[in-house]
Simulated assay, not measured.
Amino acid sequence: MIIRHIRYAVIATALVISGCSTAPTQWTQPPMAVPYQANFQQQIQLARIEQILQQPNIPPTTLATIYYDRGLLHDSLGLRDLARLDFNKSLTINPNQPDLFNVAGVLFTQMGMFDSAYESFDSTLDLAPEHPYAHRNRGIALYYGERYALANEDLLPHYLLNINDPYRVIWLYINDLKYTPEQARTLLQQRYAVSDKKDWGWQIVRMYLGEITEEQFLTEIAEQSKDNQQLALRLTEGYFYLAQTYQNKQDYPTAVMLYKLALAGNVYEFVEHRFSILELNRIFTAEENAAAASSSSSASVK
């Protein structure tokens, strides 16, 4: 069912906005959260960092940490270019930072600079072979770089380290749809069956398997989110992974709408927010290339 035509009965959204109990409201559009805004604490942290940087004779290791911390703050506020500048400054001072290489790799993936992303994740793993996220992030970068077999080599071992993490299962499934499409659903069912099913993210898997409908999935998010923060986080994830299903069906208008909804909460730090931007760029680029090819073909016929 196309999401834009579904009706939802939601309670949580009204509770979040008003702060008090109210009767269920009938919605004729998908639920949304109040977008994240830069909070006072983040602004104070940036101001303090600026003051510290004005001090003379800061030790190099301390300076590298300061630039890294400010880069993380800029990144959390969606200021990607400022974040990259800070990360570059930090790495120039101290190149022995596996976490920074990992973050840089994610940023390169979001920008579609896959070779740079691979190099960054390789650097992370050279410095910290047991890094908890580098294999997953490199696997995702390899997926977007259309190197599905190599992506599986990263994503599958990462999943086996924690079979109860739904997001490891989800990204394996997304890659399996390209790598082994005839087995993707069966593998998803098997991995779901052996999990403990405790994390909220398993609802996404249940939706993929058809155990719950899209309407039930989104209504549950709206009704059961305890506050606006949780609502924003879950909708960012929910809309992104729902968009994936429509994109795989080549329903690009609906996929584009859902990716835009995933961006609406301003949850900049989530990979689902980051990769919504990447997916939109990929869709728009494909459309532009198709239009250019069609125009060129028409011109040659004349």
Rank of each mutant, 00 (worst) to 15 (best):
I2V: 11
I6G: 04
R7N: 15
A9P: 07
V16C: 10
T22M: 14
T22W: 13
A23S: 15
T25R: 15
Q29A: 13
P31K: 00
A33V: 08
A33N: 06
V34Y: 11
V34N: 11
P35Y: 03
Y36K: 11
A38P: 15
Q42E: 14
I44Q: 15
I44S: 12
R48A: 14
I49K: 12
E50C: 12
Q51Y: 03
Q54S: 13
N57K: 15
T61S: 14
T62W: 02
A64V: 10
A64S: 15
Y67F: 12
Y67I: 05
R70L: 00
L73A: 09
H74T: 06
D75F: 15
D75R: 11
L77M: 05
L79W: 08
L82V: 09
A83S: 11
L85P: 07
D86A: 07
D86S: 07
D86Y: 07
N88R: 15
N88I: 14
N94Q: 09
Q97E: 01
N102M: 04
V103A: 05
V106R: 12
V106N: 06
V106M: 11
Q110D: 00
Q110P: 01
M111S: 09
G112T: 09
F114I: 06
D115R: 03
E119K: 15
F121K: 10
D122C: 10
D122V: 13
S123V: 12
T124F: 04
L127W: 09
A128Q: 04
A128S: 13
E130D: 15
Y133S: 12
Y133V: 03
R136M: 14
N137T: 12
N137P: 14
Y143R: 03
Y143S: 02
Y144P: 08
A149D: 05
L150T: 09
L150K: 08
D154Y: 00
L156A: 13
Y159R: 08
L160A: 05
I163S: 11
V169C: 13
I174R: 03
N175P: 06
L177T: 03
L177W: 00
L177N: 04
K178L: 00
K178I: 04
E182N: 11
E182W: 04
Q183T: 11
Q183K: 13
A184R: 07
A193V: 09
S195L: 11
D196M: 12
K197D: 02
K198P: 12
D199E: 04
D199C: 00
Q203D: 13
R206G: 02
Y208Q: 04
Y208H: 08
L209Q: 00
I212H: 02
I212T: 05
T213E: 01
T213P: 03
F217V: 04
L218W: 00
T219Q: 10
A222W: 02
K226N: 01
D227Q: 06
N228L: 05
N228Y: 02
L235T: 09
L235K: 05
T236R: 05
G238R: 07
A243P: 01
A243K: 03
Y246H: 13
N248S: 02
Q250N: 07
Y252L: 15
L258M: 08
L261K: 09
N266K: 08
V267H: 06
Y268G: 04
V271P: 15
H273K: 04
H273N: 13
R274G: 06
I277C: 15
F284P: 01
A286H: 13
E288C: 01
E288M: 02
N289V: 09
A290P: 05
A291R: 09
A291H: 07
S295R: 14
S295I: 13
S296C: 07
